[in-house]
Design a protein around this nucleic acid. Structure first.
Lengths: 128, 128
DNA sequence: CCTCAAATTGATAACTATTGTCAGTTTATC
DNA sequence: GATAAACTGACAATAGTTATCAATTTGAGG
């Protein structure tokens, strides 16, 4: 993978905006910083970076993929109210992979967990 | 929800073809049994049935949603080789929800786990 | 530096999965 | 049987994402 100004900028903006943005949201962030990067280039780079393990692509949050600069093993929670995506630490399911191996015999290469519910901020608001 | 011939047929075919089909695959199954149901009707019913809790919509298997007649609490595994979707029993992560509640304080309404890897059949084939 | 192949960009077009529209049909209730 | 509400399905539209490809940029070697 060669260097490119655009890829560096994308990685930079994604890291500074740790809100699990979609491609569209990232494009906005970039434009706000006067980085006009083509949407094709953005998608191409996001996929390349994910492929290379430098970022994470979060599926399961239809209708569009979100992207995460945090490549540390962890899970995600999306609030049904404010739609914000939160990180969930991976130690909530310590024996998961082992248990699946035992139960199925399959070779597990990766896994993702998505939780849906109401976050604390939105629980507060509802109480008022 | 009123009765409809189409909805009954969709539920019937989905139940008999327990392979977690996509909407397109379901359409094929239906056509094979000479049930020509419009794609709009199919999607509308799948969403209604999922809404009503009579089937499950499986997100996170891009690029398209899969559907599952099994509404029992369970998870999914997709084989990177043959692309088949398998069920994974839910008892592999017994304390999951509690642990997330403890870690985050969030109200968890639902969650999904998707495992990626190689299934036993494909492991066999690779050995040859 | 200069050259050159390989990698990258981005405008445009294309594709795919899914949903909106709406007139005509079916269902259920009285 | 009449009537309102639910449902169908052809068609058009939308949204997210990828393919195409000529022009530009990058990096390794001479």
């Amino acid at each position: 993978m060669n260097y490119s100004r655009q890829r560096e900028k994308i990685l930079d903006v994604l890291t500074r905006n740790a809100v699990h943005p979609t491609a569209d949201e990232l494009l906005e962030f970039l434009q706000r910083e006067n980085s006009n990067i083509g949407i094709t280039t953005l998608y191409r780079n996001l996929n390349q970076l994910a492929e290379a393990g430098m970022i994470k692509k979060i599926d399961g949050l239809e209708p569009s993929a979100h992207f995460d600069h945090n490549t540390f093993n962890h899970y995600h929670f999306i609030c049904e109210e404010c739609k914000k995506v939160y990180d969930v630490p991976s130690d909530i399911a310590p024996e998961l992979i082992n248990n699946v191996r035992m139960a199925t015999g399959f070779e597990i290469k990766s896994h993702d967990i998505v939780f849906h519910g109401i976050c604390n901020k939105c629980k507060q608001k509802e109480r008022k």
